[in-house]
Amino acid sequence: MFKLGLFLFVGLVVLAGAYVRLAPSHPDRWHVAPLGKADRNNRGSVFRVIETGPNGLARLDAIARETPRTRVLAGSVDDGMVTYITRTRVIGFPDYTTAMQDGNTLRIRARLRFGKSDFGVNRARVDGWLALLQP
Rank of each mutant, 00 (worst) to 15 (best):
W30F: 15
H31P: 09
H31S: 10
V32L: 13
P34E: 10
L35T: 15
K37C: 07
A38Q: 10
A38N: 00
D39Y: 01
D39P: 02
R40L: 08
R40F: 08
R43Y: 08
R43P: 14
G44W: 12
G44P: 12
S45M: 14
S45Q: 14
S45I: 14
S45P: 10
V46E: 06
V46A: 11
V46I: 15
F47R: 06
F47N: 03
R48K: 02
V49D: 00
V49K: 01
I50R: 06
E51T: 14
E51N: 09
E51Q: 10
E51L: 07
G53I: 05
G53V: 06
P54V: 11
P54F: 01
P54R: 10
G56Q: 04
L57A: 04
A58S: 12
A58W: 06
R59V: 10
L60I: 08
D61A: 05
D61V: 00
A62Q: 12
I63K: 05
A64D: 00
A64K: 03
E66D: 15
E66L: 15
T67E: 13
T67Y: 12
P68L: 14
P68V: 14
R69A: 10
T70A: 13
T70G: 11
T70P: 10
T70D: 09
T70Q: 11
R71S: 15
R71G: 15
R71Q: 15
V72E: 10
V72D: 08
L73S: 03
L73V: 13
L73H: 04
L73Q: 04
L73A: 03
G75E: 07
G75L: 08
S76Y: 11
V77P: 07
D78N: 13
D78Y: 06
G80A: 02
M81F: 09
V82R: 03
T83N: 02
T83Q: 00
Y84P: 03
I85L: 07
T86N: 00
T86A: 01
R87W: 01
R87L: 01
R87Y: 01
R87K: 07
R87C: 02
R89A: 02
R89D: 00
R89L: 06
